[in-house]
Design a protein around this nucleic acid. Structure first.
Length: 106
DNA sequence: AGTTTGACTGGAG
DNA sequence: CCTCCAGCCAAAC
């Protein structure tokens, strides 16, 4: 059982949630945090994806900011998303109305 | 042990 | 739609 914050457990949960994001869809850092069981850890999700992601392949490029914008310090992300058919608005954000993943569709 | 940093978020202006 | 800001929390200094 989990009595307090456990970095390894958190990383494992984040890994599992991100892995189920369907092709052509995206999720936000906040969604991942909530689905992983850590509602207030959106920032930590970003930390995990930026460091632990090298261990195993996970579609971390499908995780964007809550407003649909892509990560400023990770320019390759947008290209990867466009490569799988994701559309962007003229303001440079992912068209969430069409691509935001709905976890209830599992 | 105090401060800064960061792949975050929602609300206010 | 954009910028600014307080709240957020572990990690790195």
């Amino acid at each position: 059982m989990l009595t307090q914050y456990d970095a390894k457990h958190f990383a494992a949960e984040v890994h599992a949630v991100v892995a189920m994001i369907p092709y052509g869809h995206v999720a936000t850092y906040g969604m991942i945090a909530r689905l992983a069981g850590y509602p207030a850890y959106a920032r930590q999700v970003g930390h995990i994806l930026g460091t632990v992601s090298s261990e195993t392949y996970i579609p971390c490029h499908r995780v964007v900011h809550a407003d649909g914008s892509t990560v400023q310090s990770w320019h390759m992300q947008r290209r990867m998303l466009e490569n799988e058919g994701i559309k962007f608005t003229v303001t440079g954000k992912v068209c969430l109305q069409h691509h935001l993943w709905n976890p209830e569709t599992l």
